[in-house]
Amino acid sequence: MLDQTTPSADSMQKSIISAIDQIKTIIVGKPEQIKLAVCCLLSSGHCLIEDLPGVGKTTLAHALARVFGLHFSRIQFTSDLLPADILGVSIFNPQNQQFKFHPGPVFANCVLADEMNRATPKTQSALLEAMEERQITIDGTTRHLQKPFFVIGTQNPLDQSGTFPLPESQLDRFMMKLKLGYPDQKAERELLAGQNRQLLLQSMQASMSIEQLLILQRSVDALHVSESLLDYVQLLVSKTRDKQLFVYGLSPRAALSLLKAARAWALMDGRDFVEPGDVKAVFNAISSHRLIVAEQHSKSVESLLDMILSQTAIP
């Protein structure tokens, strides 16, 4: 039933694996996070990376853009950044007496929004709205953003003075939140001993075209999900709604994201169906930034989510 333009599940998996392998050569010692980031891209979500500066957030974004052949742009958020700086602006051209729209950096396939918490809420929400709608309206004209449109937002957990941390409700716009963390000894050694990352990046070859990526994104939606898997997803989501654990539980939107990411994960594993392992793999990344631990608990969100995973029997 597959036509010429649709690659087989097998070849899809191969191209994904080669893409991941290429990224691994740049970002060493973080296979889990790389896989999740690719998963997020495949499921048409946006990714939030929260970590210290210098652990490779920017490099990861660059690498992703490179291997998938995406048009990349970067926005460094500062306190004086304005929405127009992100979206673009119409400038009057005296020659032909007309306004001409100069698209902003948001008109790219892969946008790195660096240190989002340093800009004002107004500017933040301009980007967040663009992420949700995948289109922007300026001067009454609606302009579609490029496809695929993938935003990697970063937040610096330190340096809190003079920043505007994204509120929880806005964090929901990001499908996943990743933490990179320090590399382990071996990986760091490899990093130190290896080549210049910038040069490496430039020498990277795209593993697939944008068209292929779009086909992959579409085939994620087509992946089969069985009733018993839906039971499992519902069971997990309902457990996060326990008032003893979290202030409020996962929303239906979060549940949809969880399912979609699990599909993408299954696709990356070369399967045409989703199994509980896929859900488990993405559960933490999908849920951690959407939940707030109830006051009486001293544990972290991550450990509570792990606890839910280890205590929820697969139906």
Binding site: H224, S226, F273, E275, P276
Partner: peptide
């Protein structure tokens, strides 16, 4: 088993 349970 996994296929019977989860695949189409």
């Amino acid at each position: 088993y996994s296929r019977i349970k989860y695949a189409r």
